[in-house]
């Protein structure tokens, strides 16, 4: 099981959104709502492309299990 962020080290300082890998059900609901195509769901891996993500918070709102958090 893996929830990843591309270029994770750089990410930590830029983006506020975080995915809780213990809650994520890999349903892809957030992927379908992301207006910037910044999320990608593999079988058991949800990847955020930090170059595309703008911290808009839409994925935070629609996650059915509250697995995406933002400060």
């Amino acid at each position: 099981m893996n929830v990843g962020i591309r270029n994770r080290e750089a990410h930590a300082s830029i983006l506020k959104m975080r995915i809780d890998r213990k809650k994520c059900c890999y349903c892809g609901g957030c992927v379908g709502a992301c207006p910037l195509n910044a999320l990608e769901l593999w079988e058991t891996e949800l990847v955020v492309d930090e170059d595309k993500c703008t911290d808009c918070g839409i994925c935070v709102k629609c996650c059915p299990v509250g697995a995406i958090e933002a400060d």
């Binding site: 892809g28 609901g29 992927v31 379908g32 709502a33 992301c34 207006p35 195509n37 990608e40 769901l41 839409i58 709102k61 629609c62």
Partner: peptide
């Protein structure tokens, strides 16, 4: 490819779901 479709998006169609 379902609700999390990437193919249509990668082609340039807007398939983003509004909340």
């Amino acid at each position: 490819d379902g609700v999390d479709s990437k193919i249509a998006k990668s082609a340039g169609l807007n398939t983003t779901n509004r909340l």
